[in-house]
Amino acid sequence: MTALISLLAAPAVIGIPTALVWLLGRRAKVPSWILIVFLLAGWLTVLVGWALSQRAQPSLFPETSPCYGTRGTPVSQYFPPDSFCRHVDGELRTVNGANSKLLFWSAANTTLAVMIAAAFVQRHQRSRS
């Protein structure tokens, strides 16, 4: 039953915000390519951020957690997204590498840059008419 609920909830959680952004962007006369890049970069930011913050958590198989063999306790940080293992001596050590953090920040900055570009395009269109 839980699988059925999550199967039905996934299109709503992804589809409704995507459709809302698309419809609002089209109403504001933002070009389609800007909307597509914005949506792709935005969802990439959300998914990579979630994966980075949940990497140390033993959700399905505790043996697959990076903290499993170290007697460490998993700790999550949601912004900026990162996962840590709190070791016996109290030290926090990250379990995410620099490349995955770079992917998150690249996607987040692309989302922001496209949003600013859409505002400039809209302003330019108003000044021409």
Rank of each mutant, 00 (worst) to 15 (best):
A56S: 08
V75S: 03
C85I: 07
P74I: 00
V13L: 15
A108D: 09
V21E: 10
Q54E: 13
W33Y: 14
G25L: 10
S127I: 09
E91C: 09
L103Q: 01
T110L: 14
A107K: 01
I34K: 11
D82R: 06
P58S: 03
Q54C: 04
V95N: 00
V121A: 08
A98K: 05
V95T: 10
W50L: 15
W105K: 00
Q77D: 06
L40H: 08
V48S: 09
W105R: 00
Q77V: 07
K29M: 13
W43P: 02
V21F: 14
N99A: 14
G42Y: 12
R93H: 13
L39Y: 06
L102W: 10
K101W: 09
A28L: 14
P11G: 02
S65R: 02
V88R: 13
Q57C: 03
Y68D: 12
T94M: 01
A107D: 03
F38H: 04
G15L: 12
L102P: 07
R71T: 11
V46D: 07
S65H: 05
F120T: 00
T110F: 07
T70I: 05
H87E: 08
V95D: 00
I116F: 06
D89G: 04
V88S: 09
P66S: 04
W105D: 01
P11H: 03
R26W: 13
T110M: 13
L4F: 07
I14K: 04
S59R: 08
S83M: 08
V75G: 01
P31M: 06
A19F: 11
F84M: 05
A118E: 03
I36Y: 14
L20A: 10
S106T: 12
